[in-house]
Structure formats: structure tokens, C-alpha cells
């Protein structure tokens, strides 16, 4: 899994590529948690390049969402591939996390 981040205003935009599974979820958690700091952290995670998400990946996403909420911040996903989107819906994650079709709309919502 490759992650690259850029700051747009006060929002971190993280572009994720690859697989979010039992082999990569630890690294993903570590890199994301480094951005979930301070007060009211705001993050958009671009999932357009994420081709695979397993339950191990979902657990990490859940942990991040909880941490962001504790810090009174916001986290949104955008451009989620259809099969991954289905996984988020089946597991109830789609109801817990803001998911936007495009990066631009996610940025507008969090800015």
C-alpha cells in the first residue's frame, strides 16, 4: 500500500493505492495516525487506487474514525471503487463514514 499526502487549506488529502489487508493494515494505520493529531484533524482519503479491502483493513479504518471523532475532527473517503464500496455497505461502514464520489466534493464538505 502506497500513501501520499498533501495539505489543502486545513485538510490533509491522503491518496492511497494498493491493497488494504492483513499484510498492509498495520503500515496504513501507522502512517494515517501520524496525521490524526492536534485539535479537529480533517482528512480526506482518496480510495480511487485502493483495489482491495479486507476486514483487517476495515478494523484500522474504524480505529481511525474513532480517533478522529475523539479529537472532534472529520474523516471522509472519496472515489471508492464499486467492489470496495459494497464491502463498506455490507459491514455498515457506509453509514458510519462520509463517502464522497469525488475528491472535490469531499474537500468542500470538510473545508
Amino acid at each position: 500500500m502506497d500513501l501520499s499526502e498533501q495539505q489543502v487549506g486545513r485538510v490533509w488529502v491522503v491518496t492511497a493505492r494498493g491493497r488494504l489487508d492483513g499484510a498492509t493494515s498495520g503500515q496504513f494505520a501507522q502512517q494515517m495516525e501520524a496525521l490524526v493529531t492536534g485539535t479537529e484533524p480533517r482528512l480526506v482519503v482518496d480510495f480511487s487506487g485502493v483495489e482491495f479491502v479486507s476486514s483487517a483493513g476495515l478494523r484500522v479504518v474504524l480505529g481511525l474514525v474513532k480517533k478522529v471523532k475523539t479529537l472532534k475532527g472529520a474523516l471522509a473517503l472519496c472515489a471508492v471503487q464499486p467492489a470496495v464500496r459494497e464491502v463498506l455497505e455490507i459491514t455498515g461502514f457506509a453509514g458510519m463514514i462520509d463517502i464522497h464520489p469525488e475528491r472535490a466534493t469531499a474537500l468542500t464538505a470538510l473545508s
Binding site: D21, G22, E51, F52, S54, Q81, P82, A83, E86, V87
Partner: peptide, 14 residues
């Protein structure tokens, strides 16, 4: 198709 590719890989992984 992409959906079935993902879900077969996911079921095996889980």
C-alpha cells in the same frame, strides 16, 4: 468481472 474478482479474493483472504 471486477466485482467477482474482488469478492473471491476477499472470501479466500477472510
Amino acid at each position: 468481472d471486477a466485482r467477482a474478482v474482488h469478492h473471491v479474493a476477499l472470501v479466500i483472504e477472510e
